[in-house]
Simulated assay, not measured.
Amino acid sequence: MAGEPQADCLFCRIVAGEVPATVVRESATTVAFRDINPQAPTHVLVIPKVHHPDAASLAAAEPEIAADVLREAGQVVLDEKVEDSGYRIVFNTGAGAGQTVFHAHAHVLAGRGLTWPPG
């Protein structure tokens, strides 16, 4: 069921403390941690503690938590001191867009040139 932890979800297991992660921020509703396969010098994932398969599902079901994810992404930018050099916040949705873990999450990317349009 949406919102409930999923036993087979990597990010739910990180939230539960069952899988280690390099956590850089945590709030009552979110966890932010370094990506294990970084695509930029700064690559942090910000996830809601509740399980929803993608950003649109999260926003439809729990818009206040979707806002928390974006707020925490902004705090990661400040903590990492990349606000002046530029950064990108990305929500991949679906396998065709590169989503590999089907738990809503934002990628915070910075520290190198980020061309548009991306790959």
Rank of each mutant, 00 (worst) to 15 (best):
Y87I: 00
V76W: 01
S57G: 08
E83K: 15
Q75N: 13
V76R: 00
S57T: 13
A61T: 10
A55I: 13
D68C: 12
L70F: 09
L78T: 12
Q75F: 09
E83H: 14
A67E: 03
E62F: 13
Y87F: 10
E72D: 14
D79E: 12
E64C: 10
L58P: 01
L58D: 00
E62T: 13
D54Q: 05
D79H: 09
A56H: 11
E62Q: 14
A55H: 12
S85W: 04
E62S: 13
K81C: 06
A61L: 08
A56C: 09
Y87H: 03
A66T: 07
L70G: 10
S85I: 08
S85T: 10
L78I: 10
P63I: 07
L70N: 07
L78Q: 13
L58V: 06
D84H: 11
S85V: 05
G86S: 03
D84P: 02
G74P: 05
E80G: 02
A56Q: 13
V69D: 02
P53I: 15
G86P: 00
L78C: 13
A59R: 12
V82P: 03
A60V: 12
D68S: 14
A56P: 00
A55Q: 12
A66M: 07
V76G: 03
E80A: 07
V69A: 07
E83N: 11
A73K: 01
A67H: 05
E80H: 08
S85H: 07
A55F: 14
E72M: 11
E80I: 03
G86T: 04
L78M: 14
Y87Q: 00
L70Q: 09
V76N: 00
R71Q: 11
A67K: 10
A67F: 04
K81R: 14
P63M: 08
L70M: 12
D79R: 11
D54A: 10
G74V: 02
S57P: 01
P53Y: 13
A55W: 12
D84L: 08
V76A: 02
I65V: 14
I65D: 02
P63V: 02
A66I: 02
E62D: 15
G86V: 01
A60G: 08
Y87M: 00
E83F: 05
A61F: 08
L70E: 04
G86Y: 04
D84R: 15
A60L: 11
E64V: 11
A55D: 08
D79P: 09
L58S: 03
V69R: 06
V77H: 02
D54W: 09
D79G: 10
D79M: 06
E80D: 03
G74D: 02
G74W: 03
D68K: 10
E83L: 05
A67W: 05
P53Q: 15
R71D: 06
A61P: 02
E83Y: 07
